[in-house]
């Protein structure tokens, strides 16, 4: 189980690195799909069917919108001015090299701090519940909902769900605002 998920996450990492480096935007978006569908499989393996359904559909709709945006363009990635040519030999220019070194140091430092900070927490497959103990013990009996996630979403934390739906509405109104034809009278 752990090995299987690890393999999928490695694939997701590979997919996302390809996404960020591919020359063609369409293939970038499609390899981004690898990441998304890998996530769906992880959800299924980790016993979260609700999320798997939601994620796969959201993934598809996001891809449709992204492709509709990309289709208006030339689909080519912008050129990265990271290398310079001197007498036919490619050199990475100094500024880029400096960026790469700082970036790498920063990332490794973050990773180190993350590992250092989380080493004492519950390992994979063990989870101490505190707040959700009530949800699991009496949630089904009190709310009457067999699906505990629905019980949490619509009864214990219905206010959260109101916020979530409001975020969607906010984004829709925002998109309608941004895509108006003319801004000023």
């Amino acid at each position: 189980m752990e090995v299987l998920i690890a393999i999928i996450i490695v694939l997701m990492i590979a997919g996302s690195i390809y996404t960020l480096h591919s020359r063609d935007l369409l293939s970038a978006v499609i390899s981004y799909g690898i990441t998304g569908f890998g996530l769906v499989i992880c959800f299924l393996l980790l016993q979260a069917p609700d999320l798997a359904i939601a994620q796969i559909l959201v993934e598809i709709i996001t891809l449709i919108i992204m492709i509709s945006v990309i289709r208006i363009s030339t689909r080519e990635d912008v050129t990265e001015r990271s290398t310079i040519h001197i007498k036919g030999v490619r050199y990475i220019n100094m500024r880029t090299a400096a960026y790469i070194v700082t970036g790498a140091v920063f990332m490794i430092a973050l990773l180190y701090f993350f590992m250092d900070a989380t080493v004492l927490l519950d390992p994979f497959g063990v989870h101490q519940v505190r707040m959700s103990a009530a949800y699991m013990e009496v949630g089904a009996a009190i709310t009457g909902s067999a699906n505990l996630v629905a019980g949490v979403l619509f009864d214990f934390r219905a206010y959260d769900t109101l916020g979530e739906a409001t975020i969607l509405i906010t984004a829709v109104i925002g998109i309608l605002t941004v895509l108006r034809l003319k801004g000023r009278r």
Partner: peptide, 18 residues
């Protein structure tokens, strides 16, 4: 059937939008 089986308002709504 969101309160009985996996799925629910969000997933079902996305399917209908699809």
């Amino acid at each position: 059937h969101g309160h009985l089986t996996p799925g629910g308002g969000f997933a079902g709504g996305t399917v209908m939008a699809g």
